[in-house]
Amino acid sequence: MLDVLVFYVPIDDTKSVLRDLFETGAGVVGEYRECAFVSRGMGQFRPVDSANPTIGSVGALEHVPENRVEISFPREIQKHVLETLYASHPYEEPTYHVIRNAAHDHD
C-alpha cells in the first residue's frame, strides 16, 4: 500500500531533500523510480519565543519561495521516511502531511 508524503521546502533545498527520500525507498510507483510532484508557491511563518529559524528572525513575519512536494512511499517505511525528512530538511520544524490511501482493487 502506497501512502503520500506532502511537505514544503525552500526551492534551493528541494533536490537534496528528494534525493535523501528517494534513498529510503520513497518515490517508487510500480516500475518507476524517483517519482514526485513539485509545485511552487509562497510559504509564510513567524518564528516565536525560543525558535531557532533557519531563515528570518524571531518575531518577524517571513515569506519564502517554497516548493510543495508530493511523494508516494510504501506504508511500512513511513517511520524511516519521516526520520529522513527531519534529518534532511533545512527547517527546524518542517511542515508535512501524510495522506493514508485506502485499499482498492485494480480491476
Score class of each variant (00 low, 15 high):
residue 1 M to S: 15
residue 1 M to D: 13
residue 2 L to E: 13
residue 2 L to P: 12
residue 2 L to I: 13
residue 3 D to S: 12
residue 3 D to I: 06
residue 4 V to P: 07
residue 4 V to Y: 09
residue 5 L to P: 04
residue 5 L to C: 00
residue 7 F to T: 01
residue 8 Y to F: 07
residue 8 Y to Q: 02
residue 10 P to L: 02
residue 10 P to Y: 04
residue 11 I to M: 12
residue 11 I to H: 12
residue 11 I to K: 15
residue 12 D to Q: 02
residue 14 T to W: 01
residue 14 T to Y: 00
residue 15 K to W: 10
residue 15 K to V: 06
residue 18 L to C: 00
residue 18 L to R: 05
residue 19 R to D: 13
residue 20 D to Q: 11
residue 20 D to C: 01
residue 21 L to N: 11
residue 22 F to D: 09
residue 26 A to P: 11
residue 27 G to M: 02
residue 27 G to C: 02
residue 28 V to K: 14
residue 29 V to R: 08
residue 29 V to F: 09
residue 29 V to M: 08
residue 30 G to H: 10
residue 31 E to R: 14
residue 34 E to V: 04
residue 34 E to S: 13
residue 34 E to R: 14
residue 39 S to E: 15
residue 40 R to D: 11
residue 42 M to H: 06
residue 43 G to N: 09
residue 44 Q to W: 06
residue 44 Q to S: 14
residue 44 Q to Y: 08
residue 45 F to K: 10
residue 45 F to C: 03
residue 46 R to F: 01
residue 47 P to W: 07
residue 48 V to F: 05
residue 48 V to S: 15
residue 50 S to W: 11
residue 52 N to H: 13
residue 53 P to D: 03
residue 54 T to F: 06
residue 54 T to V: 11
residue 54 T to C: 07
residue 54 T to Q: 09
residue 55 I to L: 14
residue 55 I to S: 08
residue 55 I to D: 07
residue 56 G to N: 08
residue 58 V to Q: 03
residue 58 V to R: 11
residue 60 A to S: 12
residue 60 A to M: 07
residue 61 L to T: 12
residue 61 L to F: 11
residue 62 E to R: 08
residue 62 E to M: 03
residue 62 E to D: 11
residue 63 H to M: 06
residue 64 V to E: 07
residue 65 P to R: 02
residue 65 P to H: 02
residue 65 P to I: 06
residue 65 P to G: 03
residue 69 V to N: 00
residue 70 E to H: 04
residue 71 I to Y: 00
residue 71 I to D: 03
residue 73 F to A: 01
residue 73 F to G: 03
residue 73 F to C: 06
residue 74 P to D: 04
residue 74 P to Q: 06
residue 75 R to S: 08
residue 76 E to G: 00
residue 77 I to S: 04
residue 78 Q to I: 03
residue 78 Q to F: 00
residue 78 Q to K: 14
residue 80 H to I: 01
residue 81 V to C: 07
residue 81 V to I: 04
residue 82 L to H: 06
residue 83 E to S: 12
residue 84 T to H: 10
residue 84 T to I: 10
residue 85 L to M: 12
residue 85 L to F: 08
residue 86 Y to P: 04
residue 88 S to N: 06
residue 88 S to A: 15
residue 89 H to K: 07
residue 89 H to L: 01
residue 90 P to M: 02
residue 90 P to E: 11
residue 91 Y to K: 10
residue 92 E to S: 08
residue 92 E to Q: 11
residue 96 Y to L: 09
residue 96 Y to P: 10
residue 96 Y to D: 08
residue 98 V to E: 00
residue 99 I to M: 13
residue 99 I to D: 10
residue 100 R to W: 06
residue 100 R to M: 07
residue 101 N to S: 15
residue 102 A to K: 12
residue 103 A to V: 04
residue 104 H to C: 03
residue 104 H to M: 01
residue 104 H to F: 05
residue 104 H to W: 06
residue 104 H to Y: 08
residue 105 D to R: 14
residue 105 D to F: 06
residue 106 H to Q: 10
residue 106 H to D: 12
residue 107 D to K: 02
residue 107 D to P: 05
residue 107 D to F: 04
